[in-house]
Design a protein around this nucleic acid. Structure first.
Length: 213
DNA sequence: GGCCAGGTGTAAA
DNA sequence: TTTACACATGGC
């Protein structure tokens, strides 16, 4: 089976099992970006606690963050861990949005990805998540689940760039497909294909090559 | 109590 | 270019 067909078959199986995901879970684009930074190396459950704290203090907008203090932000986002680093990252994000003249202008930059990557604290996954789920542009997001699952199921390995190329060259460039595919991979990763493989009941078991080696 | 979670920056080989 | 390490809280 070609890689193209494997990727679509994996998508079909995941969608059949888990249904439509409707990612990203957020009320607006800025909230989405804040969540993208807060979820770095932390489970979404922790992010929700921090988001609630920020909402209660009406902090989920660029100006409020910029006019706040690092100490105040740190207190509110503590549940997500790495709070000293992440408070600075949120501050830089707010600065970038304001400096760009708002979200519309930010998202319309033709060098959006490079612009985001130049913000200290935004790496490839965070940048691509923002591009896909906030700016609504078809960019395939790769995370640790993606690397592990593709390695186990297809036997393909590589760094971020290589994995992203693998998906983008074997899938049609489709906004909704990319959004749902990444969300479905995360859903699978949370339940199966963990570091110690959980294959019992995995929807990909029939095309997974684990154990054939 | 130990492991893991929707990464990133920095330093060093 | 790759690898090692710090960053930190909450759930199971």
């Amino acid at each position: 089976m070609s890689n193209e067909k494997k990727l679509m078959e994996i998508y079909r199986l995941l969608k059949n099992r888990f249904g439509k995901q409707n990612w990203w879970p957020s009320e607006n684009e800025f909230e989405m970006m804040v969540g993208a930074i807060l979820t770095q190396n932390v489970s979404w459950n922790n992010v929700e606690m921090a988001m609630d704290n920020l909402k209660k203090k009406i902090m989920l907008n660029p100006l409020s963050l910029k006019n706040s203090s690092l100490e105040k932000i740190q207190e509110l986002i503590k549940p997500t861990g790495f709070y000293k680093q992440k408070s600075k990252r949120l501050m830089r994000l707010a600065d970038a949005v304001i400096e760009s003249g708002g979200l519309k202008n930010l998202f319309q930059k033709d060098n959006l990805r490079e612009y985001l990557l130049n913000i200290n604290g935004i790496g490839p996954e965070t940048a691509d998540s923002i591009i896909l789920y906030a700016a609504d542009r078809p960019k395939f997001v790769v995370d640790s689940y993606t690397k592990r699952i593709i390695n186990r199921v297809i036997g393909y390995e590589g760094n971020y760039r290589r994995l992203q190329q693998f998906f983008e060259s074997n899938l049609r460039s489709d906004l909704e497909l990319y959004k749902e595919y990444h969300a479905l991979i995360v859903e699978l990763g949370k339940n199966y294909c963990k570091k110690e493989p959980v294959c019992n009941g995995c929807p990909l078991i029939e095309i997974c090559e684990l154990g054939k080696k």
